[in-house]
């Protein structure tokens, strides 16, 4: 590990929370809008990455913050030499990492009851829900895919949980998260208790299977079809997993990151505008 003083000097060019500062930031009450781990990991030097990794090593037991991308340089300039002076910047992009107790508000209560139900059934909370993320006042349970249906069933049926209304499923594709590229995100609402939470389930690109939750939440029928259609996640046990938006014979899954947007350049009064995915982008 780098000496904290060196770390401070290395990162002097950018305001990076390292050392004691990062520790102070990590103690911010969960549920607030600040994301210390993410803020640290998004900083712009290798030292910052190390500092971020240290934060999460302390925060979660054996879990790391999900790095979804690494950015190089600034202003989106690539291949024309380093004219900006910022070409050496390396910025890992991290999503908010796992949170520690107390989660704040009713989050602890829900997690406790869910843990009780899952431990009683023999599944074990730690196996079914590897990590809990509290970010921006929202509770996210990262659920292991093999236990998804059981977790959903418990959330729906236990009288103290009662997440009876499903807001559907949608996918997110993180091509840089090796081994868990595909995420299925479920939003549940408890009308009884006035609560809402998010389940996040991951699957690797080469085995894109997640069990279907249609048996628990019939509302997810079309939503799972849409997620299959757009991301190629196969929901095992779905009663009829056909494409829903795209034509049946469409090749590929359009909302994956490796699927191009398409488009043609447009000429107007002598000037040509390239299609949106080929225009300048800012890293």
């Amino acid at each position: 590990m780098t000496d904290p003083k060196d770390a401070t000097r290395d990162a002097a060019a950018t305001p990076v929370p390292t050392g004691e500062k990062a520790d102070a930031a990590a103690t911010v009450k969960p549920g607030e809008s600040t994301t210390p781990a993410a803020a640290a990991a998004q900083a712009t030097s290798e030292t910052a990455l190390e500092a971020g990794a240290q934060n999460t090593g302390r925060a979660g037991a054996g879990t790391t913050i999900p790095i979804i991308d690494v950015r190089y340089g600034m202003f989106g300039v690539h291949g024309s030499g380093d004219t900006s002076g910022y070409g050496g910047l390396v910025a890992p992009v991290a999503m908010p990492g796992p949170s520690e107790r107390p989660y704040g508000g009713w989050f602890d209560e829900v997690v406790d009851i869910l843990a009780e139900v899952l431990d009683e059934s023999g599944t074990g909370f730690a196996d079914a829900v590897p990590s809990v993320v509290v970010d921006r006042g929202e509770l996210t349970l990262n659920v292991a895919r093999e236990h998804l249906v059981e977790v959903a069933q418990a959330l729906r049926d236990d009288q103290d949980l009662r997440f009876e209304l499903s807001m559907g499923v949608n996918g997110v594709h993180y091509p840089h998260e090796t081994g868990e590229e595909l995420h299925a995100v479920y939003h549940l609402v408890s009308v009884t208790h006035g609560r809402r939470l998010r389940l996040e389930v991951t699957a690797p690109d080469d085995d894109p299977h997640i069990p279907s939750t249609v048996g628990v939440y019939p509302a997810n029928d079309w939503h799972e079809r849409e997620t299959w259609d757009f991301f190629g996640i196969v929901f095992d046990g779905h009663p009829g997993l056909a494409r829903i938006e795209m034509p049946d014979d469409w090749p590929g899954h359009p909302q994956r990151k490796d699927y191009p947007l398409g488009g043609i350049p447009v000429e107007y009064k002598g000037a040509t505008t390239p299609p949106p995915d080929q225009r300048r982008s800012y890293s």
Partner: peptide
């Protein structure tokens, strides 16, 4: 800032839920 958020509004036809994910860009 990187992260994800969910918002709900009461649309004339029901609950409109919006899930946005940012990678800090």
């Amino acid at each position: 800032p990187a992260g994800q958020a969910w918002s709900e509004v009461e649309h004339p036809r029901g609950v409109l839920g919006v899930h946005v994910v940012s990678d800090g860009g």
